[in-house]
Simulated scan of single mutants.
Amino acid sequence: MEHTLSTGHPATPDLARMRREYDAAEPHRPAVREEPLVEEYLAGDWPTQFGRWFAEAVAAGLPEPNAMIVSTAAPDGRPSSRTVLLKGYDERGFVFFTNYGSRKGREALANPYASLLFPWFPMGRQVVVCGRIAPVDRHVSEEYFHQRPRGAQLGAWASEQSAVLPGRQALDEAYARAEQSFPADTEVPLPDHWGGLRVEPETVEFWQGRRSRLHDRLRFRRTGEPGADRWIVERLAP
C-alpha cells in the first residue's frame, strides 16, 4: 500500500512543503561578506577557515554562535546527541567541558569517536567535524573551571549529570549541600569527574546553502596519522 507523508495532526503545517531557497538576497539573512564557497576562496587550512566563519557568525549577531551539536555513540553503536558550547579550538581540535559521568562523557571514553555540527542556519552555513575524542590535560580543565561563574562551579558538584532524579527538589538539595561544603570565602575545587574533551578532527566540512539544493560542500580530510598535519580538500556532492 502506498503511503503519503503526514504531519500527524491537522493543525500542523505541511512539512513536505516546508523549505527555503538559500539565496544571499533572501529577507532577514544577516549581512555578511558572501563569497562563493569555492576552492580558490577557501583558506589554506581548516582552523583559519573555521575562524573566518566563526568571526562572521559572531559579527552577524547569531545567538550563541559557539553552540554545537555533539554526537557520540555507545560501544554497541547506539548514537546520542546534545547541544554544548565550544570553549576553545586550535589546530589540535575543538574543546568542550562536561561531567565525565554524563552519557556523552561515558560514551566518549568507551567509544572515542564523535561528530560536531555548528548549525548557523540564519547564514545558510554549517560546519561538520568528525574525529577522535579524548580528555584534555587536567591543567586545562583546572584553568577553565576556575573561570566559570561560582554558581556553575557548584553546579558541577551538585549534578550527577544524566542520572535519573526523583524530582527537582533533589537537585536543589544537592546544590544546597555544595554551597555548604564550599562556603563563599573558599575556592571551589575542580571535581575529579569533570573536565574537558577534545575532538581531534579527521574531517572538517564547510557547507554553504545554494539555490535548487545545489549546495557547496568543501571538506578538509586528514590523509596521514594524527599529528602529521597532511590534509587534502575534497568537494562533495550536495
Rank of each mutant, 00 (worst) to 15 (best):
V95D: 04
E107F: 12
P122K: 14
G131T: 12
V136P: 03
E179C: 15
A174S: 15
A152Q: 12
P149A: 06
A174P: 04
A156E: 00
N111C: 13
G93A: 09
T98Q: 09
A178I: 02
C130D: 10
E143I: 04
S115Y: 13
Y175M: 12
P122F: 15
R177A: 15
L117H: 13
L171D: 01
Q180N: 06
D172P: 00
E173G: 03
V128F: 14
F94D: 03
V164T: 14
R138W: 03
A184W: 05
Q161Y: 02
T186C: 09
G151E: 08
R177T: 13
A174G: 06
G131C: 12
G167P: 02
F145E: 00
F145T: 02
L190I: 12
T186G: 06
L190W: 07
A152W: 01
L165P: 02
H146S: 11
A178G: 04
S159D: 02
A114K: 11
D90N: 15
G167E: 02
A174M: 06
Q147C: 08
G167F: 02
E107W: 13
R103I: 09
E160G: 08
A178H: 01
A156T: 00
Y175Q: 03
E160D: 11
W120D: 05
F118E: 05
V95L: 09
G101A: 11
D185I: 13
A158V: 01
Y100M: 07
A176H: 08
C130H: 15
A134Q: 10
R103E: 08
A176E: 09
A156N: 01
A184M: 08
G167K: 05
A178D: 01
A152S: 15
L154H: 00
E107N: 14
F96P: 03
T186F: 08
Q161H: 07
R103C: 08
G88I: 14
S102Y: 12
S115T: 15
G105C: 10
A134R: 14
S81V: 14
R138H: 07
T83Q: 04
G93P: 10
V128C: 11
D185C: 11
A110L: 13
S159T: 10
Q161C: 05
S141K: 02
P119V: 13
E143S: 14
P191S: 01
V164H: 09
A114E: 05
F118N: 07
R125K: 15
E187A: 10
P166Y: 08
R138E: 08
V128M: 10
L165D: 03
Q153H: 04
A156M: 00
